[in-house]
C-alpha cells in the first residue's frame, strides 16, 4: 500500500517551466463586466449569499469578482478595464505553507491549489497571506431559504461557519470530464468542458483548458504577446494570464 512517505520530494516540486496543468486566459478588453461569471460561479459552487449587512461590511463571498477602478482626477476620469479576479492557482502558493492544519494543499494530480474544507480550523492565515485576496471566509452559517436548497450542486460540498473557501477551477467538472473520458477509453479533449465562469461568459473573455498541452486553445492564447500574470514579481507562479490594451 502506498503511503505518504512513498512520494518523492521531486514529484511534489513544481518547476517554473511546467506552469501547472490547468490554466486560464482572461481577455480584459472584451470583458463587459456583466458579472454573469460571478453569478454562475455562486450557483455552481454552492456559495452562500451573505445578505446586505455582511456584504456591506466586506464579507460578501465570491470566488470570482470583477474589479474596476477610476483613473485620473474628477472630472477627467476614465474607468480601467474590467478585471475578473479569482484564485490564480499559484504554482508556489503563499497560502499553502502557512496553514497549520494542511487544510490548503497542492493537488499532485490536478496541480491546482485545494482547500480541504473538513480539515480547516479557521485560523485565516492563508487569506492574510494571499496576495490576490481571493479567499472567502464563512463568517456565519448563512441561511438558504426554500426553495434555494433545491438548487444546490450535489457535486460540491456545502460549507459551514468558520472555514475558508476559494475558487477550485471547478474541480468537480474536471473530475467529471476525466471520468467520462476514462469510461470511453480516451483522453479529455480540449474544450470538452469548461469552468462555470468561462461557460457562461457572453463575450468569451475567459478561456480554460490544459496549459501542459501546447495545442490547446488556452495555451495558444496564453502564448500571444502582451500577456500578464498578476503580481508576477512575487514569484507565486500563477496560471491565469491576463490580456489588456491589445
Amino acid at each position: 500500500m502506498a503511503t505518504l512517505n512513498d512520494l518523492k520530494i521531486s514529484e511534489i516540486k513544481l518547476s517554473e517551466s511546467e506552469g501547472g496543468k490547468w490554466g486560464m486566459v482572461i481577455d480584459q478588453d472584451i470583458c463587459t463586466g456583466c458579472q454573469a461569471c460571478v453569478a454562475a460561479c455562486a450557483m455552481e459552487n454552492n456559495i452562500s449569499f451573505v445578505g446586505e449587512v455582511d456584504a456591506g461590511y466586506g464579507r460578501s463571498m465570491h470566488w470570482i469578482r470583477i474589479e474596476r477602478f477610476w483613473e485620473g482626477e474628477y472630472p477627467e476620469v476614465k474607468m480601467t478595464p474590467n478585471q475578473p479576479m479569482m484564485c490564480q492557482q499559484c504554482g508556489a502558493a503563499p497560502c499553502e505553507p502557512v496553514c497549520p492544519a494542511f487544510a490548503t494543499v497542492h493537488s499532485l494530480a490536478e496541480k491546482v491549489n485545494l482547500q480541504v474544507y473538513n480539515r480547516c480550523v479557521g485560523t485565516r492565515y492563508c487569506a492574510n497571506n494571499c496576495p490576490y485576496q481571493v479567499r472567502s471566509f464563512n463568517w456565519r452559517d448563512y441561511e438558504r431559504p426554500e426553495p434555494l436548497p433545491n438548487q444546490l450542486n450535489p457535486d460540491v460540498t456545502v460549507r459551514r461557519r468558520g472555514i475558508m473557501e476559494k475558487c477550485t477551477f471547478c474541480i468537480q467538472r474536471i473530475h467529471h470530464a476525466q471520468d467520462q473520458a476514462k469510461a470511453e477509453g480516451r483522453e479529455v479533449m480540449d474544450g470538452e468542458f469548461t469552468t462555470a465562469c468561462a461557460q457562461v461568459c457572453p463575450a468569451n473573455a475567459i478561456t480554460f483548458g490544459r496549459m501542459d498541452d501546447p495545442q490547446s486553445l488556452v495555451s495558444q492564447l496564453a502564448k500571444r504577446r502582451g500577456g500578464m500574470k498578476m503580481h508576477e514579481d512575487l514569484g507565486t507562479l500563477p496560471v491565469v494570464t491576463y490580456f489588456k490594451g491589445g
Binding site: D54, Y57, G58, R59, G122, R124, Y125, A127, N128, Q133, S136, F137, N138, W139, R140, D141, R161, G162
Partner: peptide, 15 residues
Amino acid sequence: AEGLGVAGVNRPSYW
C-alpha cells in the same frame, strides 16, 4: 454558536 460574524474581522483584515 453564531460564528466569527459577530466579531469585526473581515476581508482584508482577517486578523
